[in-house]
Each structure stands twice: as C-alpha cells, then as structure tokens.
Amino acid sequence: MKITEEMVDYISQLSRLQLPQEEKTAMTAQLEGIVAYMDVLNRLDTSGVEPVSHIFPLKNVTRSDEVVPSGDREELLANGPAVKDGAFLVPKTVE
C-alpha cells in the first residue's frame, strides 16, 4: 500500500498534530517503510494459523475489587506542563 501525504495529513489531524512540511515528508517515508514490511509479512502463508490477539497464551488475568489508596495528586500532576486547581490545564476543548 502506498502512503500519500494526504493520508499523513489525515492521521495527524486525528491525533491533533500539526506537522511542518519537512516532518510531513519524513513521516510519509517512514510510514511507507512500516507498511512495506507488512507487505513482506503478508507474503507468508498463514491459512492454517489461528489469529491471536496476545502473544502469550494468557487468559483471565484479573484482580479482586479492593480499593488501594490512589496516587499523590501533586506527583501525578507533575507529569503535565500546565496545572491549575488540582487539574491539568489543556487547550480549550469544551464550549
């Protein structure tokens, strides 16, 4: 599959990213490389292989419904660039 610049525009729009032209060009080439590798994988005959969603044969990994004290708010908020009133501050998204 060919990756076009329009596709890169669309994907960056879904991720709310604004890419300058040179990054856009670089990204197009990189995505193209990734998708080309999928084409290599697609050449394998997998007709007799069960699809898996998980690489380990694990199932039913669960925990019991018991409350553990939550994290320290200041410590958690320290991971964001802007904070106000105990909350992350992000660009306007609600009206």
Partner: peptide
C-alpha cells in the same frame, strides 16, 4: 476533589499495565 481518585494507570502514564477487575 479533582484528580484525587487517580493513579498512573487511569491517568494513562507510559509503561503502566491495566489489570481487569473480576
């Protein structure tokens, strides 16, 4: 109070692993 019922998992910090509540 805002963000007092939170931890690295529900705040989506990189490297955390979700485990399903039975």
């Amino acid at each position: 109070a805002p963000n007092t019922h939170c931890c690295p998992v529900c705040m989506g910090m990189p490297g955390t692993l979700p485990v399903l509540n039975e």
